[in-house]
Design a protein around this nucleic acid. Structure first.
Length: 447
RNA sequence: UGGCCGGUAGCCAAGCUGGUAAGGCACGUGACUGUUAAUCACGCUAGCGCAGGUUCGAAUCCUGCCCGGCCAGCCA
């Protein structure tokens, strides 16, 4: 069957197909799946924006088209022309009466597409991640991630922040705590960054309000559902801001991201199976508790038998501790003023209680753990020198960082949010490895 | 790095008090003009992570190693 004119039918995307009801359109995509019933074939096409079922009755399509469809294998790439028809039997509301199919590349039947609709273990799926990303759930997650990133960048751009990109290759450890990946840098040793924070403190002194958005690397040998060796962080840094200012910034940023995901990617969240009622109320203000209050919560939990180990004051929280604390709230909870000795060297001490740091961790609900760590930074040159010595850090490597306190130092604060943990929480995923197209973990660097 | 669990066809998986490898999915062929995880029939595919040991005989027992998962520590 030929189309009526020489003008080729317009290419449309499957999400837009409803705008072409009754019209002949072209879809560029892949065969997602196929069902046959004798002289009737139902090819299901996907194009990256959605899925639509085609209908091809033998007596209504050309013999060539019918044969092509009958022999078509899953995930073969195809260009399909057909007439859009609304149909209440279709999940998306529309079907495509197939007129013509052009096979771009046919998947051979003796080596079929390995990922079927069900029953795959995680190892197999990760080994085939380059193909797994095509599945509807993975596509939905990638779209939600993109929306979260877009909304966060938008959030800062609209508030007068300037994006400043810190280096990824660095000469020394930023914080001196995590294990870093080392690389050969023209016969010198260099490291992959674990945080852009120290560098954006410098750009904050230039531009006032800045943020960075980029990859970071940790060579820690942790293999849990919350860890990747390569992950993305968004880090704002604000000159003249105090701890309270960035706590407010953090809750506004998180709310903005959650609300944007719900407003713009709701169907994707539903595809993923997220219970969005748990996200609807994620709006400021978030509960704020001190470290001391968090410890009380843990001691209560221990007394009730809900927390196994009795928490030792002055320690940092373990993963089960964070889960219990966050379980007491239905929004992210901001825990501030930890003992200085369990925190990073650059954190400003609380003037009221110098043993505490002016810092904040944001713990996500539903056991997703820490998604944000932030603090007010030490402003005084001599105090920072002292801290660097106490932490046995190489002083010379921090000369430039100390300069920031020598040449017009000001109070300033910032935080970092791990994108994958935030996406895992917002999507309600079991593991962060699904939040990024190609997760790098302790045990996997292929594909 | 430690504790626990696991590696059987392309995938999922039973078998693991030793006796000679279920079943399902996928794929192929045939039937079916409304299928939605379609259905029905037939067919194809493994010698059980690797190495060694015990035994008449090992997927099953023993030793060592490799790989993966979960949890913990550490962190975002």
């Amino acid at each position: 069957m030929e189309t009526e004119s020489n003008i080729p039918p317009p290419v449309t995307s499957i999400t837009q197909i409803g705008r072409h009801d009754g019209e002949i359109v072209t879809i560029q995509g892949w065969l997602y799946n196929k069902r046959e019933s004798g002289k009737l074939i139902f090819p299901i096409f996907r194009d990256g924006t959605g899925v639509v079922q085609g209908v091809a009755p033998k007596n209504q399509v050309s013999p060539e088209t019918f044969e092509t469809l009958k022999n078509l294998t899953d995930e073969s790439s195809v260009i399909v022309t057909g007439k859009v028809r609304s149909d209440k039997r279709a999940p998306g509301g529309y079907e495509l009466d197939v007129i013509n199919v052009t096979v771009v590349q046919r998947v051979p039947e003796d080596d079929p597409y390995p990922i079927s609709g069900k029953e795959h273990g995680i190892d197999f799926l990760m080994e085939n991640r380059h193909l797994w990303v095509r599945s509807p759930r993975q596509c939905a997650i990638m779209r939600v991630r993109a929306e979260i990133i877009r909304s966060i960048r938008n959030f800062f751009d609209e508030r007068g922040f300037t994006l400043t990109d810190p280096p990824i290759l660095t000469p020394a450890a930023c914080e001196g705590t995590s294990t870093l990946f080392s690389v050969d840098y023209f016969d010198d040793e260099a490291f992959l960054t674990q945080s852009g924070q120290l560098y954006i403190e410098a750009t904050a002194m230039a531009l006032g309000k800045v943020y960075s958005f980029g990859p970071t690397f940790r060579a820690e040998k942790s293999k849990t559902r919350r860890h990747l060796t390569e992950f993305w962080m968004v880090e704002p840094e604000v000159a003249y801001a105090r701890l309270d200012d960035i706590m407010e910034l953090a809750e506004n940023m998180i709310s903005h991201a959650v609300q944007s995901a719900m407003a713009n990617r709701r169907t994707d969240l539903e595809t993923i199976g997220r219970d969005v009622t748990k996200l609807e109320h994620i709006k400021p203000p978030f509960p704020r508790i001190t470290y001391d209050q968090a410890v009380e919560i843990l001691h209560d939990g221990h007394a009730k038998g809900l927390v196994e180990a009795k928490f030792e004051y002055c320690g940092d929280f373990g993963s089960p501790d964070e889960t219990y604390i966050s379980s007491q709230f239905d929004k992210p909870v901001m825990v501030h003023r930890y003992p200085a000795k369990v925190k990073a060297f650059y954190m400003e001490p609380d003037p009221q209680r110098p043993d505490l740091a002016l810092c904040v961790d944001v713990l996500a609900p539903e056991g997703y753990g820490e998604i944000i760590g932030g603090s007010q930074r030490i402003g005084d040159y001599n105090q920072l020198v002292q801290r660097i010595r106490e932490h046995a850090l190489p002083e010379a490597a921090f000369k430039w960082y100390l300069d920031l306190r020598k040449y017009g130092g000001v109070p300033h604060s910032g935080f970092g949010m791990g994108i994958e943990r935030a996406v895992a929480w917002i999507c309600g995923l079991e593991h962060v490895r699904e939040t990024i197209p190609f997760a790098r973990t302790l045990t996997r660097i292929y594909p």
